[in-house]
Lab assay of single mutants.
Amino acid sequence: RPFRVCDHKRTIRKGLTAATRQELLAKALETLLLNGVLTLVLEEDGTAVDSEDFFQLLEDDTCLMVLQSGQSWS
């Protein structure tokens, strides 16, 4: 499924495809050149996407933000 993913400053944006939350996090880690533990949130309001069940309910092309440890949505 297609998703739009950005870093916490919204300066890097990438289109990625993934079937699972874990797959998307792995691709974001590599594509956005990030490291460490990542958190996935909705870009629009910062809602945490912390379960596979919730991830599977997201629509195609949902905009997501990837946060590294110590970063927060704004």
Rank of each mutant, 00 (worst) to 15 (best):
K14P: 04
L42A: 03
E43L: 01
M65V: 11
R21M: 15
V37K: 13
K9W: 05
Q22S: 14
L67E: 00
A48Q: 12
R4Y: 15
L32Q: 04
S69H: 11
Q71C: 05
T31H: 12
D60W: 09
A48N: 14
E44Q: 10
V37P: 10
T11A: 15
D53T: 09
D60F: 05
V66C: 05
T11L: 13
L34A: 06
R21A: 06
R4D: 07
L25H: 07
S72Q: 11
S51G: 10
I12K: 10
V37I: 09
L25Y: 09
R4M: 05
L24T: 00
G15S: 14
D60H: 13
A19F: 10
G15M: 13
V66D: 00
D53P: 07
L25G: 03
L16Y: 04
G70H: 09
L40Y: 02
L40H: 00
D61T: 04
T11P: 00
Q68Y: 02
T17Q: 07
E59D: 12
D45Q: 05
T39V: 07
R10T: 01
L34Q: 04
L42G: 00
E44P: 07
E43R: 01
V5M: 08
R4E: 05
R10W: 02
D45C: 08
S72V: 12
R10E: 00
L57T: 11
V37L: 08
D45A: 04
V49H: 00
R1C: 04
F55Q: 01
D60G: 10
P2M: 15
E43F: 00
V41P: 00
E44I: 08
T20P: 01
D53M: 09
Q56C: 11
L42E: 04
S74H: 10
L25T: 08
T62I: 07
T31C: 14
L38H: 14
V66K: 02
V41R: 04
G15T: 14
V5S: 01
D61P: 02
E59W: 04
T17C: 08
N35D: 14
I12V: 14
L40Q: 03
V41L: 04
L25I: 13
T11I: 11
R10C: 04
T39Q: 14
G15P: 14
R21L: 11
A26W: 13
L57R: 13
D7S: 04
G46W: 04
S51E: 09
L58T: 04
D53C: 07
V66Y: 02
K9M: 15
G15W: 14
D7V: 01
E59V: 09
F54K: 15
T11F: 11
D7A: 02
D61I: 00
T47E: 08
V66Q: 00
Q71A: 04
S72Y: 10
L25A: 04
E43K: 00
E30Y: 05
L58P: 02
D61M: 08
D53G: 07
K14N: 06
T39D: 08
E44K: 11
Q22N: 13
G15K: 10
L58V: 09
L58Y: 01
W73T: 02
S69P: 15
V49E: 08
T17Y: 15
V49F: 00
T17P: 04
T31R: 10
Q22C: 10
C6D: 00
V66W: 01
T31Q: 15
A18G: 05
L32S: 07
R10Y: 02
A19Q: 10
D45F: 04
F54Q: 13
R1S: 13
D45M: 04
D53H: 14
L29Y: 11
R10V: 02
G46A: 03
L32T: 09
L24H: 02
A26T: 14
L67I: 05
F54R: 12
L57M: 12
E44L: 07
Q56R: 13
R10I: 03
A48L: 12
L58E: 04
F55G: 00
V49K: 00
L24C: 10
D61G: 10
S51P: 05
L38W: 04
L58S: 04
T62Q: 07
L57K: 12
P2K: 15
V49Y: 00
T20L: 02
T62L: 03
T62P: 02
D7N: 10
F55C: 03
T31S: 14
T17F: 10
L34K: 05
G36N: 11
R10Q: 02
T20Y: 02
D7Q: 00
I12A: 04
G46R: 00
D7W: 01
D45H: 04
N35M: 08
F54L: 14
F55V: 03
D60Q: 13
T17G: 05
S69C: 14
T62V: 14
S51T: 09
E59Y: 06
S72C: 14
C63G: 12
L29T: 13
L33P: 13
Q56W: 04
C63H: 12
N35K: 12
L42T: 12
G36S: 08
R13N: 12
V37R: 11
R4A: 12
K14H: 09
D61L: 01
R4S: 07
D53W: 06
E52C: 04
G36C: 02
L67Y: 00
D60T: 14
L34S: 05
L40F: 06
L67G: 00
T20N: 09
V37Q: 13
E23M: 06
T62K: 05
W73V: 00
L57H: 09
E59G: 12
Q22M: 15
E52S: 00
L16Q: 02
K14S: 11
L24S: 03
L64M: 09
T11H: 09
